[in-house]
Design a binder for these strands. Sequence first.
DNA 1: CAGGGTGTGTACCAATTGGTACACTCGCGA
DNA 2: TCGCGAGTGTACCAATTGGTACACACCCTG
Lengths: 202, 202
Amino acid sequence: MVNTDGSHPEGKAAPGTDVDRRSQLVNAAVDYVAAHGFADLSLRGLGAAIGVSHRMLIHYFGSKEQLLVEIVRMSERRQRDLLSRFRLEPGLSPSDAARLLWQQLTDPRLASQERLFFEIYGNALRGRPEAAPALEGFVNNWLEPLVAAEVAAGADPAMARNRARLGLATVRGLLLDLLATGDRAGVDAAMEEFLRLYYGSK
Amino acid sequence: MVNTDGSHPEGKAAPGTDVDRRSQLVNAAVDYVAAHGFADLSLRGLGAAIGVSHRMLIHYFGSKEQLLVEIVRMSERRQRDLLSRFRLEPGLSPSDAARLLWQQLTDPRLASQERLFFEIYGNALRGRPEAAPALEGFVNNWLEPLVAAEVAAGADPAMARNRARLGLATVRGLLLDLLATGDRAGVDAAMEEFLRLYYGSK
DNA sequence: CAGGGTGTGTACCAATTGGTACACTCGCGA
DNA sequence: TCGCGAGTGTACCAATTGGTACACACCCTG
């Protein structure tokens, strides 16, 4: 790297059409990574799959590292969108709302995205710098809405955080189980048991 | 690969001292991988760290692939040893036994081994062939002893499997939380809440 | 039409990778 | 003592990697 300013050598002040192209490329990249994995991604392989040369990826993102950062960010954003698109049913009991969320989360079409989620998780735990910033949000981004839901459902505020944390952990643990075993019936049964304990219905 | 039998080119029928050296190397390799990560392991880096040339690693294991397989296997074995070393306290209530197990699992000295566990998990989900055989065991190896414990504690056999599956998922989810956030107090509190729900004490 | 900047492809480079060839040492049995 | 085979290091190879140099195509403004 010869030039001393932070920007990458070409195309200094991005004009605007660049932005569209960039986000389009990032979206395609996330799809590719969700399908083919995060760890052993190569610029050439990705480029060939999404129809650009690896040269262009460097052009738009400056380095592979930066591209990975943006892939992680976009993947996070998609997860958050997924969560925000939910919660549109006002009249449900907490138990039924949770069951519905669980059904949505275990939609097979989301499987590859969730695998990517756990893969990024693992890489972040390992200290891979492009994934590390996601670590903080892995729990906290999800915890806050859950705490709010618990409080809204009338839980004691001091308990709400513990319960939210517990619910998040259980969902993730069962999701991990489902992805590993594919035993949807078994995992669903365990979730039913959890809902019974958690919401006290019988 | 020129020769047609399954063995690697050199040192055909391993004489016996080979075996010791191999398992010694695998043990050192697991330690190294637990500390430095599984995904971007290089034979040279590993060799330099544990005091052999990468040439020797190829010699003993035939290929990097095979070495990774044995690392995964050994890591599994250690996990299982961890579990079997437990369960030595006869007089405990199920709740206290679970609490004790949780305390052991969250010992900071196990953190790197658990990170490795989740990293292998992620790679296995991605279909990495050297990690894939572990997928099956990730759930089932742990489920069976837990089911047995549930039944021994008097649970209904039909419910025992669901409860065991739920407990396993929750523990793993909270472990994931702990590794990501380091918030031991928060995670411990969530676990206490779980134990309260799970074992019905107040 | 002229000219420059943006977008892109081709060719290339240095570094690193897993794996191999060959030479060397050392210990043990004849 | 001789030899031979297991264990090891050095040097090397081909492939792949991220990243760069340079040239070309296109579009917009003058």
